[in-house]
Design a binder for these strands. Structure first.
Lengths: 251, 251
DNA sequence: GAGTGGTCTAGACCACGTC
DNA sequence: ACGTGGTCTAGACCACTCA
């Protein structure tokens, strides 16, 4: 069933990685070595390695070699997104806290801009196309390496002039500001899909060729059921696990 | 920035698909046609098409051609998994109900077996390795086509002899049975990751080459915090969106 | 400059689907 | 029998890294 040459080679290499024979951080034999040892052509060798790259086991860099990835998948806690807003002890958002708890150093680069809603954003926020929105872009880093994107979009009709538009950690939290503006949210829904990254995402997040990303569309609705906040997360699949807790599992 | 030949060709084809020029269900030009028209070699043509296959836009079949996929991504409602258990009006599980609501026909093929916990299952269920578990495998279909896998694992020490071990839709619901056994669950946590499918998954779910799957590990805990149920979902990325609702989004 | 991986070509054979 | 895509080979040139 598995007589395919590149599959067998991929399996052989994968076994070496899993068994620890090829330890994380070390390099695979070079392509020419594998060609010689396994008596296959370069195309076949590259195809086998490509399988491992797409599985997130191996990182390839031109001029360097094919390196076994360090297994550093972080857990992204998606539940209760606002639980820590405005806390005094340490960073105020759930993401930073959970990265810290896993022994790594989180950081964020926040920029804000005023723009017009794209078609997709308008659809998610139930706005007319090209209505003004306040955009808050967060590029997240773990131990200094780019990790994920979290871009929030707010209808300008709600947040114009408020602190939400400042490019900094918002105190005492975005939710509090929305509550003060009379538009607290009462319900949040996430929509996930996995897809191939766009070229821009590959570049800013340094996503290895072939790795998929999870895109999370998070919308928050006010008590009247109108969406007041949209956040788009882009989470590279090779460094993320996502965790959700169901609040009430019974009935 | 994008001078790569295969990338440009992929972009050109993708544009044709998005614009509707290449409508869903129709076939791309054959590889030899593209070679001739674009003046590139076969390897480059195949690489470009491979990009589209991995994005879930195109399906390739030997001897047939490269076909534009029909866009039929269903939404998988992950929240409140037990809400509909034991209902009389229609199918009892949330999945079937949501597929019906989206205008498709769900079906399931349920098999049960008694086995021993693998390392992974034992770890998730906090069991010793190779402890006996009751396994309930569900292969789910939409309009007759295989769609996803949902395999549940229960410690045999809890469910031995109960209706959970029957290969049928369980009445009045698995939760009710666990409650009757004195082990209702009080908390459910999902862990998601996206990865490449195993060869078996590719075969049973007919996953096109290169498409990633989302794996969802769902665990339910009894009031003492002991895991009593483990369900592993395998959801091909090209036909699924996953939706979570946050129960309490405030504070 | 030597060696690495990244891209592209040209050609071969095989497996599958259709006629 | 023919055309399709799937696999594999051999060889070329380029871009990058590192000594």
């Amino acid at each position: 069933m598995d007589e395919l040459v590149y599959t067998t080679l991929a399996n052989r290499l994968r076994a070496g990685i899993r068994s620890g024979q090829l330890s994380p951080g070390s390099y695979l034999p070079t392509e020419s070595t594998l060609m010689r040892e396994q008596n296959v052509s370069r195309g076949t060798v590259r195809r086998a390695i490509d399988v491992l790259v797409r599985e997130g086991l191996v990182i390839s860099r031109q001029g360097r070699g094919h390196q076994v990835r360090q297994g550093t998948a972080l857990v992204w806690i998606a539940s209760q997104p606002e639980r820590n807003q405005g806390r005094a002890d340490g960073p105020s958002d759930t993401w930073s806290r959970s990265v810290l708890a896993q022994g790594f150093t989180p950081s964020e680069q926040i920029t804000t801009e005023i723009g017009y809603a794209s078609d997709a954003v308008a659809r998610w926020l139930a706005l007319a196309a090209r209505e003004p929105v306040s955009i808050r872009r967060r590029l997240r880093f773990v131990d200094g390496a780019p990790y994920s994107i979290a871009d929030s979009f707010y209808p300008r009709s709600i947040v114009a002039g408020s602190d939400v538009e400042l490019p900094a950690d918002v105190q005492p939290g975005v939710y509090a500001i929305f509550a003060a503006l009379g538009r607290p949210w009462a319900r949040t829904v996430d929509r996930l899909c996995s897809r191939a990254p766009t070229p821009e995402e590959s570049a800013t997040l340094a996503i290895p060729r072939g790795v998929a990303v999870a895109e999370v569309v998070r919308r928050s609705f006010d008590p009247a059921g109108i969406p007041v906040r949209l956040t788009l997360f882009v989470l590279p699949g090779d460094r993320h696990e996502i965790e959700y807790e169901h609040a009430e599992a019974t009935t």
